[in-house]
């Protein structure tokens, strides 16, 4: 290599088989010696299988391009983009709507939580009902969208039905559902409020220290 670095531009062109100018005698000898060395090296290599080219091409044809890389190339490579001018304001409008919806949420900022909470903190609250003759007892309230058959109470000794629920801090309204049809309030709750349907909802206010009822 060091020898090649000292060659003139004409000598390089000569070695590359390109048109070149007149070479000094010494340089021509040197370049001829290099060409002879290259030719000898090539002849010393083992002959390749004639089917190798076909095999490589077949393998390349069956190799699927990586999708991510293709997509990324599609995005990054400069290319000519042609579009109707009308799409520009439409795209801008879509971006504005996207930002607006993203900050507003599906129901808008006025959409409240019925069970307000001060934090993500939750407290386990135990619910009990004395119902010795009940076949089953369920708990339904603002914390489960009043689904009557989602939170069952377990029967215990003495006809006491109970369950323990993790509730977020804040106010919760609820009722017990006995035998799937009777909605009854919890007499131990913090408050009883008119539910607007002729019944009474029980209210507990869950604080960090839990719930104390009578």
């Amino acid at each position: 290599m060091s020898e090649g670095n000292r060659l003139s531009q004409n000598a390089h062109r000569y070695l590359d088989g390109e048109p070149h100018g007149e070479l000094p005698e010494a340089e021509r000898v040197q370049t001829d010696r290099l060409l002879e060395a290259v030719r000898a090296y090539g002849e010393s290599l083992p002959a390749l299988d004639e089917t190798l080219d076909d095999a490589v091409l077949a393998a390349v044809r069956h190799r699927r391009p990586a999708r991510r890389r293709t997509g990324w190339r599609w995005l990054m490579e400069p290319r000519e983009v042609r579009m109707r001018p009308i799409w520009a304001p439409l795209a801008a409008a879509a971006a504005v709507v996207l930002l607006w919806v993203g900050t507003r949420g599906p129901l808008g900022p006025e959409a409240p939580a019925l069970t307000p909470t001060v934090a993500a903190d939750t407290v386990f609250v135990r619910f009990e009902l004395m119902a010795p003759n009940a076949r089953d007892v369920w708990l339904a309230g603002s914390f489960n969208d009043w689904r009557a058959e989602q939170l069952p109470l377990a029967a215990g000794a003495g006809g006491v039905w109970s369950t323990t629920l993790a509730l977020p801090l804040g106010e919760h309204q609820y009722q017990f559902v006995v035998d799937g049809e009777r909605w009854i309030p919890d007499p131990t709750a913090h408050a009883q409020v008119d539910d607007g349907f002729g019944g009474t909802n029980s209210v507990i206010v869950v604080g960090p220290k839990g719930v104390v009822r009578s």
Partner: peptide
């Protein structure tokens, strides 16, 4: 806010209150 209104209707429906009374409530 509209969600408490929807939830009140759902509460009435869960309690099997007749629709007319739900609307009134």
């Amino acid at each position: 806010p509209t969600e408490p209104i929807a939830n009140k209707a759902i509460e009435g429906w869960a309690k099997r209150v007749p629709p007319q009374r739900i609307t009134a409530a």
